[in-house]
Design a protein around this nucleic acid. Structure first.
Ligand SMILES: [Mn+2]
Ligand SMILES: [Mn+2]
Ligand SMILES: [Zn+2]
Ligand SMILES: [Zn+2]
Lengths: 157, 157
DNA sequence: AGCTTTTTGATACTGAGACGCAAAAATCGT
DNA sequence: ACGATTTTTGCGTCTCAGTATCAAAAAGCT
């Protein structure tokens, strides 16, 4: 699941800022460049580290202030993986309904999509009298199957 | 979805403690009594408040120390609802696969089970080469349907 | 009753994230 | 181009959930 490309992301963010009467700054440039140079899920502190490699003047506060903007604009998605800090997902603009399987043995995160699950979730919400707005599905699993087949490409396996 | 009854819960916890060479104490009694006098999802701080109404000597530290024991014994389940503190679910012993729909309008939490979803999750894990160990599905929805029908029994609606 | 092990409450500490503020940067009106 | 206005920034401080420490208390063992 490759993320949205950097140019398109910047474009979209620019439109978002404009529409909210906010300004594009060099710090925000660096941050968005950093975010869309990976398709990994990342934390605020990780993003700070990476961004500072490109421009040491970027401050923690600005990172923490920019992330909600990126979230609101739909470019990243706030995730919880059960840790006590938030993760951010840069692949959300491209596939807003994708879900995650996390391997409990090697910590690998596998993204997947399923129309069947999407449909089922909608049906369930309807049958309970609600209309579905958002959704988060997290599968915790073990890669024992892959290992048994010798098909596990992960270093930890 | 009514939770496991208090007597059964105590019984199960007692066996768990025994098997781990831990002791049943008056504080742990109070805490488990408190937990299984509700079927609401609760936070550690809420539990502390409630428990202290029954016995003011119960300390924050003991509550925070007991919750992992209850979790490990399978009597409660650690949940995240997207807030920056943990929630605990006392209905987990009774229905270990239930999921949650959270209304974004009135904060109500609706529990539901779905064999279809369970099956689908297993199939997806298998097809990716994994075996499913645990699962967390959170639907965010709006009760507008219920409101339109005048069938919403919630005070906030 | 003595001795050992576990548990407790009080207190200090940690780490993610929010907040307040004065300086700096961007934008606007002329 | 320039001063006024608005927004943004970096720094420092603060908050708050959860953890670690430790001496005292409770439980269990013989
Ligand atoms: Mn993802
Ligand atoms: Mn529940
Ligand atoms: Zn694995
Ligand atoms: Zn509602």
């Amino acid at each position: 699941m490759a993320g949205i490309n950097r140019v398109a992301a910047k474009e979209k963010f620019l439109r978002f800022l404009e529409q909210k009467n906010l300004r594009m700054t060099s710090q925000r440039q660096v941050i968005i460049d950093t975010v869309f140079s990976t398709d990994q899920h990342f934390t605020a502190e990780q993003l700070l580290d990476w961004a500072r490699k490109q421009d040491q003047s970027v401050s923690r506060a600005t990172v923490y202030r920019t992330l909600p903007l990126l979230t609101e604009s739909g470019l990243v998605h706030e995730m919880d993986f059960g840790k006590d800090y938030k993760y951010y997902d840069p692949n959300y603009a491209d596939s807003p309904n994708h879900n995650h399987l996390i391997c409990q043995d090697c910590d690998r995160i596998v993204e997947f999509e399923s129309d069947k699950i999407d449909k089922l979730q909608d049906e369930i919400s309807q049958s309970l009298g609600f209309s579905l707005k958002a959704q988060q599905l997290r599968l915790t699993a073990s890669c024992d199957e892959l290992k048994r087949l010798g098909a596990c490409k992960n270093k930890a396996c």
